[in-house]
Design a protein around this nucleic acid. Structure first.
Lengths: 204, 204, 204, 204
DNA sequence: CATGAATGAGAGTTCATTCAT
DNA sequence: GATGAATGAACTCTCATTCAT
């Protein structure tokens, strides 16, 4: 028992190394640099070794994504703690937007790239996102229970709020905000303002 | 005069061919198939020929994007014609969402992929999107002038509406809706419903 | 007669245009930019037109080379005019070296690139270089006749002097002087000094 | 230890294969045939394999150049061994000229082509050439110390001798000797004669 | 005379992945 | 378990040249 435990532990450790290296490449050199070879180089293993732990690149990216999500959850747990559900909702949204704008490459991996989603099959769960979205969903549920927002269904509220936040962030990451006649800082301000404004609109 | 006219026409026609081929590949085989080689193959020309009309792939994609936007504008002009600005706003949103959900690869090219945006430099306009977004902006402006929606600034209203629509569509295109416990059709319904709901929320 | 004369004149004029454009590209953008297409673009003709005047690129380059040589001869005629043959020899060498160091791309075309020489066949003359090298040869001949240099044969003297000058210039143009522990200016000084020194050595 | 040694040996062997193939192509098919693809074909590997050993073509060519230089040094060590420094100098020059005339494509790579020099940056050493030129420099130094040649500075003597030799060889390789009214064999004779004559001129 | 669209061949390079060791 | 050499297919792009008009 002890032996197979250790093996499992070793395996997890190695996976962790791989993931950390990949995240570092994403963050610091852009997702275009995150090739299997370069990740392997970074941890000083051979490319082949990666395939002992992941069947293909998509699977690896899925795990990297998981790690990113746990960072996001940590952020929520640190920054979105107000007792008042609506205020907490505001905190969640603010953290989410900041996370996206400050970590565009990682946000891309989490919410935009198709590759990591290839292994989440129809009728399966996207486990990576569960905790983060539950955090939002629970908060939304409290808001609804206390009639703090103009929604009846939790799922529609959560989806709408997420949609609004994601929409604004991803337009910016994808350079589509160039159509607004603003510089980069102004755009970021506008995004924060739009989200705040939206929350005010749904407040009741 | 006639000659140079014809030449110009021929040139435009060829560009049109290239764009159509590229759009076809996008739509039917996914954006991964949209390599210069494959596009050239499709129109039965050599890869080099593409470079007589476009200086690089990004420039070509930018033009394909333009074509996509003109389809979207056409759609608006056909489907979003109600005299009442708020109803027209609803029509615009509905058309936009349907366009995105029915043409995911093309929507990707228009609003998500980075490549075609590389030739839109800082402080420049993203001309491709002008007409489509003006269509929305004008409608929003009328809504605000007639106090039909709970917004003061045109740009914030337009950005928010676009953000919400884009957010929901792009989450779906990027397979992130897998987290919702619904099948594909239910998700699409949920997106339409969320957008409608949002419009009701901002109605005043 | 008049008509065919004019045609010939026109033809020469066109060739001159092509050559000038090519030289300009060589000088200002490097020989790598001197593609047929770019030359044609520069004179606002089509690539095909070039082939009405030259059977291939090598032939064109040969003509560009001719133009370069006439510049060199002009330089000799302006700067190498001393009545004393040995002093004139010094002037010739100095002008030649300066020409090479100041116009490396053109020097390359004249004395290093293989392409323009492809149309000078075995047992044929390299006409382009005749005037420039005659200028040197005549000067050398006078030097020998007046016993100013330690050579008996004109051809060997001319070949040696040219060899020395060309050797030093082409090593520099080809970046081989990097082996000397000197910066760019020092190297150029060293080249001038070596040539002067050589002339002193052969002086008698 | 033994294992990593073998690995290193294997790696060096493979590099040697690549270099040999490249040299062979240079020698027998001309430098235009020395594309990555063709070199890979020759050793029956895929093009990508080359990039496991060299980061780009310039780096490969630089290594091929190194190999060429070691051949030249070998030649010096075999043929330029006279105890008398001046006689050794004559032997060096003779070997150098013969090497150049008999291996024009390789000489081109060593002393004329720009590509392999791209990785020798400003203020860096051109290591490949060190041994060969030291061989010359040491000999020249002895000559000067024993007052056998009319030079004071080692570097100027070496530069001049190299310049003369290189000038004559490279004019011939570049087909510029076509201007001399001689056939190929006569030209080679003339080059040897000119170099000998030069050495006599600087003898004191 | 001039066009200029088109070609075909080729360049260097990068990638995810495999597999004998 | 780990290696790392090797693959094969793909990529974007450039070029000298041709030829129907």
């Amino acid at each position: 028992m002890g032996i197979s435990d250790r093996k499992e532990r070793d395996k997890q450790e190695m996976r962790k190394n791989i993931i950390d290296a990949a995240m570092h490449m994403f963050t610091h050199e852009g997702y275009e640099s995150a090739s299997i070879r370069k990740i392997a180089d970074k941890i000083e293993y051979s490319p082949g070794t990666i395939y002992l732990y992941y069947k293909d690149k998509d699977e690896l990216l899925y795990d990297v994504q998981a790690e990113c999500f746990s960072k996001l959850v940590e952020l929520f747990q640190k920054e979105a703690t107000d007792a008042d559900p609506f205020k907490r909702l505001e905190q969640i949204c603010h953290s989410y937007v900041r996370f996206g704008l400050e970590n565009p490459e990682i946000y891309d991996l989490m919410f935009m790239m198709k590759s990591p989603m290839k292994n989440v099959h129809e009728h399966e769960d996207w486990e990576n996102a569960n905790d983060a979205l539950s955090y939002l969903a629970k908060c939304v549920q409290e808001c609804i229970e206390k009639s703090l927002i103009r929604f009846e269904h939790v799922w529609m509220a959560a989806l709408s709020i997420w949609g609004m936040g994601h929409g604004l962030i991803s337009l910016q990451i994808g350079c589509r905000m160039k159509i607004m006649d603003m510089d980069s800082d102004q755009i970021k301000e506008a995004i924060y303002a739009s989200v705040s404004n939206y929350l005010n609109q749904i407040k009741q």
